[in-house]
Design a protein around this nucleic acid. Sequence first.
DNA 1: ACCTGAACACCGTTCAAGT
DNA 2: ACCTGAACACCGTTCAAGT
Lengths: 211, 211
Amino acid sequence: MTDRKQEILAAAVAIADELGLDAVSMRSVAERVGVTPMALYPHIGSKSALLDAMLEHLAGELLPAVAAGDSWREQLYGLAYAAREMSRRHPWAGILIFARPSVAGDAVRVTDVVYQGLLEAGVPEPEVPRLERLISTFVVGYALSETAGRFGTRDPRGTRGQLPDVPLPGHARLQRWLEEKRDWDEEFAADLRDLELIIEAKAQPPGGDDH
Amino acid sequence: MTDRKQEILAAAVAIADELGLDAVSMRSVAERVGVTPMALYPHIGSKSALLDAMLEHLAGELLPAVAAGDSWREQLYGLAYAAREMSRRHPWAGILIFARPSVAGDAVRVTDVVYQGLLEAGVPEPEVPRLERLISTFVVGYALSETAGRFGTRDPRGTRGQLPDVPLPGHARLQRWLEEKRDWDEEFAADLRDLELIIEAKAQPPGGDDH
DNA sequence: ACCTGAACACCGTTCAAGT
DNA sequence: ACCTGAACACCGTTCAAGT
């Protein structure tokens, strides 16, 4: 990656962090770099390619969090928390991950760490890719729901929602818990523990000869 | 909702279905309705409000799938499959659901059905809202991953991915399974069964006095 | 090799004007 | 009450031209 491309990418990430992904335009990035919009094209190809590069940058940020951790539990929890923190640093991460089919080099390495963790946990080989997708879908979805505000106003008496004029027996019965302020850190941790239940249910003792 | 607003909404949905969400512009919608772009504003307020109306329309499409089903299992499975089918009818659904904080009237009713199902399954009341978010996050995330192609090229030898020059022990060990063609219907069903494990682990017998 | 400037076909939205 | 037309400040991208 050339210096110029690096510079363009950094400008795009900075703009997305500060003003949101919609504010990333060839024109705004060019202005930040100090150049004409058309000067970007030889370096990054197109707006679409720029977004792909931003996506790959995210995977690169995630990789360092992957090295540490002895047990598969530490590895997978560490990665999940790192992904969520990344989503808070870069609130546009979730949208990009879901909206763009990506197999960037570093993203594959992150996936590989999850594969290794699940294998170590004793998940049978044919089940591992599916469970990786299940877990990553949830983790990215959760992070995105947080940053996009999907979880924000589920109480129908919230600012934007008006109660439909039909009975809501579920909400009525849960009223007490719906009024409580949620701790999203705690909820994420509880969700991961629940997903661990699935892993443990699949896990088999590691063959006849235990090490 | 006035006839005109109905007509505008239908035009927007049709354009999104045919040409993608990005093709939905005030100008393209207006043209389809047979009117000037500015004529839309008194009826729908803004582009953002139009997207909110599209989101609410999705919840309205989901509601009929909710009525049927006797057991909580039938209800929750039925709803999950209906959501996935809706996402195939309207590939823009997932993006909109994740990107926009929504508590439309009908969306709350869908959530209420999930609450009722989880309560009936015996999940303790304080856990129900969290599990609803866990499940809905996964279901919408899965549907979006499918339509956006996130699952498409996870094999690093895929069309777009080039293998990084680092070893990938997980991929290496799973090579046989990664080469297999996936059945996404089957995978979704298997994922739902796994999530049911979580529900069952939380479930308690329905109190001392059985109804 | 790298950048510029003008141009094209698009956006959402405001505002004054028409009927 | 409902719609139009011109205008403003934006988009991504192409193409010919400059150094």
